[in-house]
Design a protein around this nucleic acid. Structure first.
Lengths: 213, 213
DNA sequence: ATTATATGTGACAAGTTGTCATTAATCAAG
DNA sequence: CTTGATTAATGACAACTTGTCACATATAAT
């Protein structure tokens, strides 16, 4: 987490630093980016940088948190609008989310983020993120409360959360694939929906007699 | 790709170098590993290293190729044994594959590989791998020829390949999760089978009248 | 005006990578 | 053998990193 010193900074200086960092991270991965470049870009001294941030990762996670769309809020809204329908709700959410990421003016940043994101970093960032606790849903409501559980085969809340989370990781995978193969927004959305259909309805043809499965 | 010079090396020297590299990569990610350590470990000069490999990645991809289990062969065998049944075949393959990775004496190497693998690296390694062309199935047979397509909803071969490939990426995700959460082999296998069931049979309860879906 | 406290600074040690002129070993042919 | 030609090995080097730290400079509080 950035130090208090950083948050005390004048808006002008904070903006300068964020812009300098975004410039670097928009063309380079976390690993290839250098602090030297960032301090040059933002015209602050090296010593100051280390007064604000522990290291490069600390700054990067801060930026991810700052520019990460509030997907929980969006997901909540989509499920609500589709009256809890699992397929329709997630479809709406996924399509909107893909558009937000791929249409963002921070395209370069997100592209690098997705292409170079690994499990380790993702988990670390998530811990950071959860800890910050920005993202509480209104009135303590949880996504799971707005999903129509009667549609799903899962019995426990734990399994429902599991499947929701798993589809989120599928969505992220699909976005990566979209960036890598330079798919259009529409193509990426279609790929996502195809996979969502697989998971929702299954890939196997079930014959009448074994339909009890 | 390593240079011809590397392949011309005496077995002793090659082994020394591979061992020195494995030592480094077993406790560090690709990014944290240093060539300086590798050449120290294997007692070769810095200049020689660059005569054998373009850079750190070049060596790393070579090792991945070398130690990567021949999953295609294994997959082929499993589908054959289960008479092409999609669920049974992939279940058998996934369980065996998880055991191979997590029981390997190269655990540290694989753990680091999985935890720090990102889309970019994965794709680059795959290109390297495909190019090397080690891994041709016997007699030009393809996995798709041994899968019972009549069980699946997909109409085209392209879609079948897509779903097979997608489940492979789900399997890798599950292994990452296993490493991260320090799950046992059995727990990781169970998680995989649960997800495979989701994808195979769908997560949604289908009522009689809409069963035509 | 005088302490405290909070910020800003760049030179620095200790590390990294990739290169390259030079030296050493190996091989082929007269 | 000996002489060239090819191929391989070497470590010093420039050019970059990163994180630290003694010091300079603001700002606030008494």
């Amino acid at each position: 987490m950035p130090s208090q010193t950083f948050f005390n900074l004048s808006e002008e200086k904070k903006k300068r630093l964020i812009a300098g960092a975004m410039k670097e991270f928009s063309s380079k991965s976390l690993n290839d980016a250098s602090i030297s470049n960032i301090v040059k870009n933002s015209k602050i001294s090296r010593g100051s940088f280390y007064q604000y941030f522990e290291d490069k990762k600390d700054l990067y996670f801060y930026l991810i948190g700052k520019f990460r769309y509030n997907y929980r809020q969006l997901m909540f809204k989509c499920f609500q609008e589709e009256e809890g329908d699992f397929f329709k709700g997630y479809k709406a959410f996924g399509e909107k989310y893909i558009r937000l990421i791929m249409e963002s003016e921070k395209f370069g940043f997100f592209e690098n983020m997705y292409m170079h994101m690994n499990y380790q970093i993702n988990q670390e960032a998530r811990v950071d993120f959860d800890h910050a606790d920005h993202q509480k849903l209104p009135e303590g409501k949880r996504i799971i409360d707005v999903v129509d559980k009667s549609q799903l085969k899962m019995a426990t809340d734990k399994d429902i959360i599991d499947i929701l989370r798993y589809i989120l990781s599928m969505l992220n995978d699909t976005i990566m694939e979209g960036f890598w193969k330079e798919l259009s927004i529409t193509q990426t959305q279609e790929l996502f929906v195809k996979r969502l259909e697989w998971i929702t309805y299954g890939v196997k043809i079930i014959k009448e007699k074994e339909a009890s499965q």
